[in-house]
Amino acid sequence: MADSETTASVLLTHEVGLHARPSVKLTKLAKTFQSAIELGLGGDGPWIDAKSIVKVMAAKAPQGTTLHFRARGADADAAVAALVGLVERDFDEVGAHVGNG
């Protein structure tokens, strides 16, 4: 299998950043792909397992952070595209502006 890596970055615009609910959505989506997927708060890392809800939540990325995704595996392209899409759509939470998300 080709060992190619897919990467992409996206600006986190969600009002409360990568807090609980967005973290859950991101992790759940990541888990639907076979590829190994990592999330970086910078292009040089540190990189964390995007399928670990504990690690994603602990990253506490605030609004305005550029999130970096890198994936390796058969469905890496689809995984990165899906995750970038989720962030771009503000985690499908339009109008959800509750305090600590």
């Binding site: 609980a20 859950v24 992790t27 759940k28 888990k31 639907t32 399928k51 809800i53 504990v54 939540m57």
Partner: peptide, 11 residues
Amino acid sequence: AVIAATEASGG
């Protein structure tokens, strides 16, 4: 509970 359920939801 939230974290366990998140993990469980992925099988």
